[in-house]
Design a protein around this nucleic acid. Sequence first.
DNA 1: CACTCATGTTAATCTAGTTTAACTTCATTT
DNA 2: AAATGAAGTTAAACTAGATTAACATGAGTG
Lengths: 196, 196
Amino acid sequence: MSRKEQPLIDYINRIVELSEEEEQILLSGIKTRRYLKGQYILQQGDVCSVSAFVLKGCTKTFYLDDQGQEHVIMFSIEDWWTSDLASFITQTPSDFNVQCLENTEVVLFPYETHDKLLEEVPILERFFRKIIERALVASQKRVVRNLSMSARDRYLYFRKQYPLIEQRVPQYLIASYLGITKEFLSKIKSQLIQEQ
Amino acid sequence: MSRKEQPLIDYINRIVELSEEEEQILLSGIKTRRYLKGQYILQQGDVCSVSAFVLKGCTKTFYLDDQGQEHVIMFSIEDWWTSDLASFITQTPSDFNVQCLENTEVVLFPYETHDKLLEEVPILERFFRKIIERALVASQKRVVRNLSMSARDRYLYFRKQYPLIEQRVPQYLIASYLGITKEFLSKIKSQLIQEQ
DNA sequence: CACTCATGTTAATCTAGTTTAACTTCATTT
DNA sequence: AAATGAAGTTAAACTAGATTAACATGAGTG
């Protein structure tokens, strides 16, 4: 029960139910790995060969555009998935980088064993469908927010939705996530303080 | 072979392979329906009870914000899916409206028969997973575009990616889809013409 | 034919957010 | 204790895009 993969098992069991035996098969098909702060789990241009579940630590997923500008797509902390699902699913080169913002420990689902795992534990097919569905819902809602909310409102939403992340991640990365400059986020924050 | 649902069967067969028998079961679980221009397939606040495949016509999916402003999320034409997947999947009230921009004929997948259909034709489970995966990839790429591209570049991308839609849909709705005002899109277009 | 009504254009003014650049804070290294 | 460097702040000048409003076009329709 004190195995380090337990948070992953718990996470999966909140969505589908695994038998003891299925848990064992699952555990045999995955690995845990530690990364140091600054290390990359995935680099832009590489095919995403693993889907990762964060046991401890924090990562950022970002994208470098033609001008070399960094755009943060998401952060991941304990109990979150991180990977470029698009690249993982289609096994095509990734648009994204995943880099650790802290020393980070993850469970890795390698793509090679993924199909085999789904065959041996078919209930995982439903599990993966469900997490992809959730990711889709979240992504669609983000499109809507970006289209219909001001920078200030997006920040307030972020702060409310992810209070733990705001405390762990430097402000200039949050600005990037929100699609604004760090200077403007600083201005928004000082306005919010003024107003009270 | 000249049944009107054929485009749907073809679409599915491009992703998974259905036997004759599976096709028959599928056909018995779906309905086709016509809508007139202006009619709604789905209204904001209702639970999305059907997933729709467009046989003929054109729809817009949009969202009304607190100020009553309309934000177009997507257009769908022949051979596209249209529905609020988030609402359909989770059976919670939808954030979106789906309205027909032309007289439109669709195939409807009712949610009630959805589970039964998946049981009887298990290969459809994979089919739905794949189309959700595609939707996720598309949605994530759109987030990136909205964060990293100017309005002008988003328009050029749209024009290149969806030339057929541009011809069928009024310009002010395209502006809304791009997240800009119709006046600004008009300005962008006249600038593009000037430059040549 | 004249009259709507929906769509698109142009131009002036305005504002949310960017850019640039100088300065502050604070933790880490030497 | 000085020095370096990463993170954050402030403020002035600037720009992409919004707003407002007047006008243009064109396809129905009475």
